[in-house]
């Protein structure tokens, strides 16, 4: 099996190894739907997500306001649509940052070993010594409440996970014959890392990144909920749940319930997509 895969050109091998599955399709569809909502929000709703309409506040869901209106008279459906922009943006930026910092760190540690390994991976252990939600909240609190700082905090918390995966995968890839061959041919470190090792470890990083999106959204929404993330009137879902919090106790459930359902949908979508990608890309799970 392995020798056969090595014989065919890479693109074909990749195509042959990729197998579609239902998790992939359903998860992908949910995520695409959310992206669609985020991009076309202004076309999908006649209302403004920020503008106040005090006379029209606290309306229960109806055919006019599908998700009702909040305490400022804003259409909740509209805010959920626009909210997709923020939550997707947070997820993509934070995951890109975390993977962008964590992956090279893990690669360096796994490739050079020795002191590089000890120093980098012990620092990563320290990041993992804190329950991640707590570290994210404390960082966000210390940095000051804002959307940018929330993204930064969530990204920092995520770094160690990517470093660990890249570390293990790099060590495994370093012993592969083609890497040794490239090394024997005199390829410098940076070329070995970028052209021989990076492509080999990309699959687990991509899988982790996809699964990490869901986790990141939950984390960022948590920050928004306690006022450390996006600030009002930004229609970020976590912040919206917080704004509607006192209404729920009075029976006006819709202001908090719908943004929460949006979070559940998007996170579930990313989790399905990640599971599906893992099954499609990782030959061991088949």
């Amino acid at each position: 099996m392995r020798s056969e895969a090595a014989a065919v050109p890479v693109p074909l091998a990749a195509r042959r190894r990729f197998k579609w599955n239902s998790s992939l399709v359903i998860g992908g569809a949910i995520v695409l739907l959310m992206v669609f909502a985020a991009v076309f929000a202004p076309l999908l709703t006649p209302y403004d997500p920020i503008k106040l309409d005090i006379r029209g506040r606290f309306q229960a869901p109806s055919t006019i306001h599908w998700f009702g209106t909040d305490q400022y008279g804003r259409d909740v459906f509209t805010r959920v649509l626009y909210g997709a922009r923020y939550d997707l943006l947070i997820a993509v930026l934070a995951v890109a940052l975390a993977a962008g910092v964590g992956t090279p760190l893990g690669m360096l540690a796994g490739y050079f070993r020795g002191w590089t390994d000890v120093v980098i991976m012990r620092v990563m252990d320290l990041l993992l010594a804190f329950p991640n939600i707590l570290l994210a909240m404390t960082l966000a609190a210390v940095l000051g409440p804002s959307l940018n700082n929330a993204i930064l905090a969530v990204a920092i918390v995520g770094i160690a996970g990517y470093a660990r995966i890249a570390y293990g995968a790099t060590m495994a890839a370093s012993t592969e014959v083609y890497v040794e061959a490239a090394r024997a041919l005199g390829a410098p470190h940076h070329r070995l890392l970028l052209t021989a090792i990076l492509p080999a470890i990309l699959a687990p990083i991509v899988i982790r990144g996809t699964l990490g999106m869901g986790f990141t959204i939950l984390l960022a929404a948590g920050l928004g909920f306690i006022g450390l993330g996006a600030q009002p009137p930004t229609p970020e879902w976590g912040a919206m749940i917080n704004e509607g919090r006192n209404q729920v106790i009075l029976g006006r459930w819709w202001t908090s319930v719908f943004p929460g359902l949006a979070i559940v949908s998007l996170v579930t979508g990313f989790n399905l997509l990640g599971d599906g990608l893992r099954d499609a890309l990782d030959p061991r799970t088949r």
Binding site: G222, F225, I241, V264
Partner: peptide, 12 residues
């Protein structure tokens, strides 16, 4: 259930 924010579930 893994996709649910716990603070939201609490409110529900």
């Amino acid at each position: 259930s893994l996709g649910m924010p716990n603070f939201w579930l609490g409110l529900v």
